[in-house]
Design a binder for these strands. Sequence first.
DNA 1: GCCAACGTTGGC
DNA 2: GCCAACGTTGGC
Length: 155
Amino acid sequence: MAFWLMKSEPDEVSIDDLAAAPDRILPWFGVRNYQARNFMRDTMRIGDLAFFYHSGCAEPGIAGICEVCSEPYPDATQFVAVDPYFDPKSKPEQPRWWLRDVRFVKKTPYLTLAELRSYPELANMRLLARGNRLSITPVSDAEWAFITEQLMEQQ
DNA sequence: GCCAACGTTGGC
DNA sequence: GCCAACGTTGGC
């Protein structure tokens, strides 16, 4: 099993939105970056766990954990002409953008970006790399263990 | 295949 | 709202 970090703007889809969705499942729509798409389409497996990260908000940070729960399938928004994620170059017979569903696992203590940056154990975390903009990044076993066991279990 | 121009992300 | 960093596009 692999671990991931997936960014979402909470104004669009937050951890609470995922928790409130039918069956607590939502498609991870809107990814329009090839590297992030490849992670989602080719590398992820059902059962992988991901940090649900809130970006583009007053205090960005990890808000919870979700689980990859479907095989990849085409992102429907790419074909909808009035959709913000419409891609006129993508054809239904050869979709460019793929996604998977994720299922709510739990909310966690909110770990801000600033706090994450303060731990030497996370110095090499992809999220924290200079200029990183990727919306889906791998998380190492050690990083996952440190965050879930050391940072989220404290009272 | 190079690279300038442009658009986007995302923290601040 | 600003701007650094990065990805994509398209002319050559």
